[in-house]
């Protein structure tokens, strides 16, 4: 377990010191928040209606776009090769790195997002449910994005390909995330059970993605 924690610490430290991680992602998020009303129109009533959806879409994209760094730098400078040779199975390495990505990008974004909802005239009652659903949902988002990063790690131009591979897999998280965060509108029953299903979906992702990422990394390291 110790080496796993070491990897986690190292990745968090790198994310913190290298810069350009969380800050850029939140900047990206804000940009989407500006573009959305420009595209749709400044009608406050309409914006309030689409605010949870807009926030979720922006969250998906910012988590996805910040994920290519998870393996790329380590692949380029050879540290990934060292980890392959090390005692920790690659599945655990993948899990630890995805966890680090969540802590350094997914979680801050999920915490910031609902409070940036005021740009879209978000109903203040929705801030708390949105916060809970986004914090939980972003775990799955980070893991799936890290899987996308793992299957394209050796490729020169992975960016668009990752989006094509990962965004369809985001569908369940998005649907139950939205449904869980619409507490005020749909009634507590619906949002409660969607929250539980969101949890179930997240657990499936937690089990499947590190195994798949590990297998993918092993293929590229051979």
């Amino acid at each position: 377990m110790k080496p796993v924690i070491a990897i986690l610490k190292r990745d968090l430290l790198l994310a913190w010191r290298q810069g350009g991680g969380v800050g850029t992602a939140i900047g990206f998020f804000l940009t989407v928040m500006v573009l959305l009303p420009l595209g749709i129109g400044p009608d406050l009533g309409l914006l309030q209606k689409i605010a949870p959806g807009g926030l979720w879409i922006a969250l998906l994209l910012s988590v996805l776009l910040s994920a290519d760094r998870i393996y790329q730098i380590d692949y380029d400078d050879g540290s990934l090769e060292q980890m392959t040779l090390g005692p920790v199975p690659l599945e655990l390495v993948a899990g630890a790195k995805a966890m680090a990505h969540w802590l350094s990008s997914g979680l801050p974004l999920a915490i910031a997002a609902p409070f940036l909802g005021f740009l879209l005239n978000l109903d203040t009652k929705l801030i708390l449910p949105l916060l809970g659903a986004m914090v939980l949902g972003s775990i799955g988002l980070s893991l799936l994005a890290s899987l996308g990063a793992a299957v394209t790690v050796g490729l020169r131009k992975g960016g668009l390909l990752v989006s094509l591979l990962v965004l369809p897999l985001y569908v369940p998280v998005l649907i139950f995330g939205i449904s869980a965060s619409a507490a005020g509108q749909a009634g507590p029953d619906i949002s409660g059970s969607s929250f539980i299903i969101l949890l179930a979906v997240t657990l499936v992702i937690v089990v499947v993605t590190p195994i798949a990422s590990g297998a993918a990394l092993r293929t590229f390291m051979r």
Partner: peptide, 10 residues
């Protein structure tokens, strides 16, 4: 199947 289920719910 998960996507199918979630979209049905939706």
């Amino acid at each position: 199947p998960i996507i199918k289920f979630s979209v049905d719910w939706w």
